[in-house]
Design a protein around this nucleic acid. Structure first.
Length: 480
RNA sequence: GGCGACGUGGCCAAGCGGCUAAGGCAGAGGUCUGCAAAACCUCCAUCACCGGUUCGAAUCCGGUCGUCGCCUCCA
């Protein structure tokens, strides 16, 4: 079994061979922290979260770097988006950055996204960026105009190789009369001269200024991962110009290939329309989490391949949620039975089922991280588990533990949609005890065919969001 | 206008040259059940359209129609 990755650079699915055996160096473009993260960020970073989780599950030692952009990302108007936000809030730019960066991590934590190993900030790597820009000037890939530095796209023959753009054609589509100090309309800023009112500024060999957006990723990827590294990820919407510029800068400066495998995620639309900050039709992760549990959101995101676009709608996430509920129901049932199961080894038929499931799951994930197909394997497995538990019980501890372990491994460790436990807190334990007490009282009523009392307990618990299910072997409860 | 992606059952979505076209949601019928819920079983598609390549195509090629993304800030 070998892992295959669709490489956007070659437009082909390729066998994944890391630069150093057993080791994966990976960089993913992170967010610009000037506002709350939206569900589109969620799709991208949950997608890469599963990629990283699966690589680690496969035995790779992954170094995962994801930057935080906190300077240099300009609006159309030429205004730095962080400075704009700072002005709106009457706050300092780094206060804005700190606020939204923390919110970003909170949101990702809530979604079960494991943190990157390194989260470098652009503003913390100005010397590295200046050094890289100087190198590009020395090698005549960049030129200085009035305190600003631009990359000369005509000096890098391969410019456009990732996105399929052709420099000559870019000329035509360019807006007129803007950035007239550039030699070519496709040239992009490496360093911008700071106007007096621009307070995000640093000294440089070319005067006070600030770095362009693209150069941070090149400089920081180089610092933490080396000139050539294995995987570069990001959202497809950044393929041009951002990713293209990263390649140009890095390869022009170092004369070595930049990233070897490019993985780009499809965009998320909201009710059929592309979500964008300028259109204002954004759904923040916080809003989504207020309505749906994180596992449901992850299951929704993983219901289509990472490279495909996906449309967020109430119906779609509701469907994903119910599908997840079925899976979670089986897991809960297994764990419930485990409380009272007899000692004993796992049954051989079950061991076969587990092995087959695991092999299929790995086969799907090895095929360019096909999470939706892997999820289908877990659903198929769930049907068999339900049959096993409902019709062929009771089972030994060994059997139930083995099933639970596979759910934890594939559904938990890799996909991040099967929690270790429903909830871990003193309150949760107390709640469980109380509900079980009521279940016992209700069982006594049922034994006496006192359906009125029995139904009253069930109905009133339901109003509290607690659902009871009567099974042949007893009553179980779950949160609605 | 240029570049790219996509169009699979009511909805979502795998499959990308050859076993009965995965899986989830919804729907219909059934089993089980004090009732309910859950679960399980059964049923529900020939893959936008047209033409071509091939022994054989949802899968490859060409065309038509349609949707979306990028080209300007976006994950």
């Amino acid at each position: 079994m070998t892992l295959k990755i669709y490489n956007v650079l070659t437009r082909k699915k390729e066998e994944f061979v890391p630069l150093t055996p057993g080791k994966v160096n990976m960089y993913v473009c992170g967010p610009t922290v000037y506002d709350y993260s939206h569900i589109g960020h969620g799709k991208t970073y949950v997608g890469f979260d599963v990629v990283v989780r699966y690589l680690r599950y496969s035995g790779y030692d992954v170094l995962y770097v994801q930057n935080i952009t906190d300077v240099g990302h300009m609006l159309d108007t030429g205004e730095d988006r962080i400075l704009k936000k700072a002005r709106q809030l009457s706050a300092g730019p780094m206060q804005v950055v700190e606020t939204y960066m923390r919110e970003y991590f909170n949101d990702m934590d809530a979604l079960g996204v494991q943190r990157p190993d390194i989260s470098p900030r652009a503003s913390g790597h100005i010397p590295e960026q200046i050094e890289m820009i100087q190198e590009l000037i020395d090698k005549e890939h960049a030129y200085v105009v009035d305190g600003s530095v631009y990359f000369d796209v005509t000096s890098f023959a391969e410019y456009g190789k990732l996105s399929g753009r052709i420099v000559e054609e870019l000329e035509e589509g360019a807006r007129i009369g803007v950035r007239s100090e550039k030699h070519h309309s496709a040239d992009f800023a490496l360093w911008k001269k700071a106007e007096p009112e621009h307070i995000l500024r640093w000294p440089s060999p070319w005067g006070d200024g600030f770095p362009g957006w693209h150069v941070e990723c090149s400089a920081m990827a180089n610092k933490y991962l080396g000139q050539t590294f294995d995987i570069h990820g990001g959202g497809i919407d950044n393929i041009f110009p951002h990713n293209e510029c990263e390649i140009a800068q890095s390869e022009a400066a170092h004369g070595e290939p930049f990233a070897r495998y490019w993985m780009l995620t499809g965009s998320l639309t909201l009710d059929g329309v592309k979500m964008s900050k300028s259109l204002g039709n954004t759904l923040t992760i916080k809003d989504a989490l207020a309505k749906y549990r994180p596992e449901a959101i992850r299951a929704f995101i993983l219901s289509s391949h990472y490279g495909s676009p996906i449309d967020f709608s109430d119906e779609a996430i509701e469907a994903a949620h119910k599908g997840w509920l079925r899976l979670w129901g089986a897991v809960s049932l297994v764990r419930e039975q485990l409380r009272s199961a007899a000692e004993g080894e796992a049954e051989t038929a079950v061991i076969d089922l587990l092995n087959n499931t695991k092999n299929s799951f790995i086969e799907k994930m090895d095929d360019d991280f096909n999470a939706p197909a892997a999820l289908a394997v877990l659903q198929e497995f769930t049907r068999q588990v339900n049959t096993l538990i409902n019709e062929k019980g009771p089972h030994t501890k060994g059997t139930l533990n083995a099933i639970d372990a596979l759910y934890r491994e594939l559904g938990g460790e890799v996909l991040g949609i099967v929690p270790d436990q429903a909830e871990a807190s003193a309150d949760a334990e107390r709640e469980d005890g109380l509900v079980r007490l009521l279940i016992n009282l209700r069982a006594q009523a049922r034994a006496q065919k006192d359906w009125a009392t029995s139904d009253q307990i069930r109905d009133q618990l339901k109003e509290l969001g607690i659902v009871l299910e009567d099974r042949a072997d007893g009553t179980i409860w779950k949160l609605e």
